[in-house]
């Protein structure tokens, strides 16, 4: 099946700005789904609110466009009711870690078999470019005309500490790599988090003088390095990319099934 067959083509061209990284994440995700040969009817995508959350309207899977930050809560419900389905939950940085921060850490703690994709553009794009908990220090935003003083979350470290059993990071420049990590994350049994750095040329790029979309992609090439690479060893300030955690742990739906069996005393 071609990538286009997974799209609701009647909604195209999409609403994202020219050069927005979210389109590249969508493309990487569809390539991953296509390469895995998953059926449309076996996939559920839930999303919250924001530019990134519009993604669930463009894919021809089962989709839920839900409350701000609550995509993972809805996904948990769907997964427990129908454990055979594949749950994909793309979220923006604010959606995942500010408004939905608690849902994020608790889904990770339970290790429920859901694939969370954090499309990190470091800004609230849809509402006009306010800074988010992932903007970082010394960044300009509409709500930070004198630069931000807030430290940012590290998605990888947070997910790792909260108990996610698969954690990876990539960027929109490294589209092939993103597809590979997304494939692994979907196949992984347990809670998997893939952070994809995604450019917002309209707000973040313009305010922080990072240039247009191609320049921002170039920046991802220059400021990131593969885990275990010489470049990262020489310059630890680079943002590491790669798979940070990949381990097997008891999955929540399976544990729940075991509990039901135990409670029923084998009568089920």
């Amino acid at each position: 099946m071609a990538i286009k067959d997974y799209l609701r083509q009647r909604f195209f061209p999409h609403i994202w700005c020219p050069g927005c990284g979210h389109g590249i994440v969508l493309s990487s995700l569809l390539h991953a789904v296509e390469e895995l040969g998953l059926a449309k009817n076996d996939i559920v995508m839930t999303s919250g609110i924001g530019c990134s959350a519009r993604i669930s309207g463009y894919v021809d899977f089962h989709s839920l466009h839900t409350l701000h930050g609550r995509a993972l809560a809805f996904a948990t419900g769907v997964k427990l009711a129908k454990p055979a389905l594949n749950l994909l939950v793309p979220m923006g940085d604010g959606d995942a870690l500010a408004i939905g921060g608690n849902h994020f850490i608790h889904a990770a703690r339970r290790n429920i078999n859901i694939t969370a994709i954090v499309m990190n553009n470091r800004i609230y794009g849809m509402t006009g470019g306010q800074f988010s908990p992932l903007s970082g220090c010394g960044k300009r935003a509409t709500t930070a005309p004198f630069l931000t003083i807030d430290q940012e979350f590290d998605v990888v470290k947070l997910a790792k500490a909260a108990g996610a059993s698969f954690v990876a990071r990539s960027t929109t420049y490294h589209a092939k790599e993103s597809t590979l990590y997304l494939k692994k994350a979907i196949m992984h049994k347990g809670f998997s988090v893939v952070e994809i750095l995604s450019q917002c040329p309209t707000h973040y790029g313009r305010k922080n003088k990072e240039g247009d979309a191609p320049d921002m992609l170039e920046l991802y090439k220059d400021t990131t390095a593969k885990l275990g690479s010489k470049a990262l060893e020489k310059n630890p300030d680079l943002i590491p990319r790669g798979i940070f955690v990949e381990e097997e742990r008891g999955e929540y739906c399976e544990e729940y099934d075991k509990l039901v069996d135990k409670a029923m005393g084998g009568a089920r």
Partner: peptide
């Protein structure tokens, strides 16, 4: 196929002689 993979608008498709179905 890097243009196809990196196109944010999903507007490019590189069709090769081999493969693609």
């Amino acid at each position: 196929k890097m243009c196809e993979l990196r196109c944010p608008d999903l507007a490019i498709e590189v069709i090769t002689e081999k493969g693609e179905g």
